[in-house]
Write a protein that binds this DNA or RNA. Structure first.
Lengths: 193, 193
DNA sequence: CGTTGTTTAGACCGTTTGGTCAAAACAAGA
DNA sequence: TCTTGTTTTGACCAAACGGTCTAAACAACG
């Protein structure tokens, strides 16, 4: 008896994500979303629970399809040090190649931390936790392989790399150009020799 | 013939600054401002040119009374390396002691770079330029005094310190606690030996 | 083909948005 | 005290906000 939806929910979320990513939560309106997706207002509210829910879905999609995917790829490399190197190369490259200068949606959201739902905050917190764990793990693996000096303290360095990541992604939104961004990435790599 | 204003413009800007600083441009409404200052709507528009102008004034006030003041203090120290050390100690301390977790208004604004007026963007750009110049200058002075190793490349390191600054201030808004923040500051100091 | 249960469309809701305006209030100079 | 030029006040504006709701459109089942 039912009737299939005429749109793919994940397509809507994908386009919605692009909006929240670029303009942030407060500056993105429901009308922006209906305009960008072609979905009519009523259908949107029939499929989702409102703006907050839409944002959470978008954030989860970003987290799954970008952050998680990237870490998975880099973790599978033979050389762990190379994993961290490539991580920062890709961060800089991604920042520069995006014409909209959207940066990283998780970093953007972390700045408005207090304004968001508990659910959204948990996504951000977990994502950053997994990032430092990723750095820490790769550092330790690099040390057992002899590629990374034993003088490098894994936990502290992982936190420092996180700071670099956030700094690069924020400044990459427009304040700073290609040169400085690359220098920052080189400094980050320098922390693990 | 005139009639003096019954409020101090700088007081209004001060309270307005606190709002924009905490919630950002888009999430702060004119009603928020009239509520916080007690100024009636019409008087506000009589004294200022609107929301964008209000934000610019607030940003300038922040830049002058916080960033400029801090750099001036630290630059007058005898030991330039100590200047950079104290800089990061104060950044962490300031981040943690603010119950509202507002971070740095210039950093917050830099994330919404594209959304702001050209005038506001110029303030941010100039502020960050002066920050890297500050780091660079202190590094060079530290090197001529023999306190900072000659192997430290002033320009690249200045950019790296800027990345740390931004990272610490963003993560200090809530995602991360005291321990990691201090570790990041220590890593920043570590860049200049 | 009619019933059933969902989706769609878009008019509609009250509230809030940034911004304006006319009239009243006012202090200082004449 | 009366004029003068600015400030204050609060009502007012159109537009946009997030969200609701009803009626029509629809595909699948009996």
């Amino acid at each position: 008896m039912p009737w299939e939806k005429t749109f793919e929910e994940s397509d809507v979320i994908e386009k919605t994500m692009a909006l929240f990513w670029e303009k942030g939560y407060a500056a993105t309106s429901i009308s922006d979303i209906t305009a960008a997706t072609g979905i009519k207002r009523g259908s949107l509210y029939n499929a989702f629970n409102g703006k907050e829910d839409l944002f959470l879905q978008a954030l989860l999609k970003y987290d799954n399809e970008r952050r998680r995917k990237m870490l998975r790829q880099l973790e599978s490399l033979d050389d762990p040090r190379e994993g961290i190197y490539r991580f920062f190369d890709r961060i800089v490259e991604t920042s520069l190649s995006d014409p909209h200068r959207r940066g990283c949606m998780l970093v953007n959201t972390s700045l408005d931390y207090a304004q968001h739902t508990e659910a959204a905050r948990e996504v951000v917190t977990a994502a950053f936790k997994e990032l430092t764990d990723f750095f820490e793990r790769l550092i330790e693996r690099g040390q057992t392989r002899g590629d990374i000096p034993e003088t490098v303290e894994p936990v502290a360095t992982a936190n420092a790399l996180l700071a670099f990541l956030v700094g690069i992604r924020v400044l990459g939104r427009g304040v700073v150009g290609e040169g400085p961004l690359q220098q920052m990435a080189e400094s980050a790599k320098g922390l693990i020799g």
